[in-house]
């Protein structure tokens, strides 16, 4: 599934201007714990979290994730977003809580791989 399509279908708010969203999403990973994402997510996954710690971008970059969706309207600070743009990690936000957002991604056919 294509990230741009996910952004459109779920009306996500893209917080990293200028990044190409035309990229393949291999699956979804949900966690608010950085160590868990480091250990268990797979490259190309879209990461759903409410964690806005600066290191989310570093983790996504190291694991080669397709992007980060922040739930519950959590707003990352400017430094995090600058870093995301520099590392080519799209960051999107949604007003939905994790369960609802993941349910909709699952309904679109995305799975945890």
């Amino acid at each position: 599934m294509n990230l741009q399509e996910i952004v459109n279908r779920l009306s996500l708010d893209v917080k990293t201007p200028g990044l190409d969203l035309n990229r393949e999403v291999t699956g979804g990973y949900v966690s608010d714990l950085l160590s868990d994402v480091m250990g268990n997510s797979s490259g190309g996954n879209i990461w759903i979290t409410l964690q806005i710690h600066l290191n989310i971008v570093a983790v996504a970059s190291l694991k080669g994730l397709a992007g980060i969706i922040l739930v519950n309207n959590r707003r990352p600070d400017e430094d995090t977003l600058k870093r995301a743009v520099a590392e080519n990690i799209p960051v999107m936000t949604s007003a939905l809580p994790t369960f609802e957002l993941v349910g909709r991604l699952y309904a679109l056919g995305l799975r945890c791989r």
Partner: peptide, 20 residues
């Protein structure tokens, strides 16, 4: 044994929702 993603997805698919 399912992941968090698939756990949420399957429960949502069967009609459970999040009120918050």
């Amino acid at each position: 044994d399912l992941s968090m993603f698939d756990t949420c997805g399957k429960l949502y698919e069967r009609g459970l929702r999040s009120q918050f």
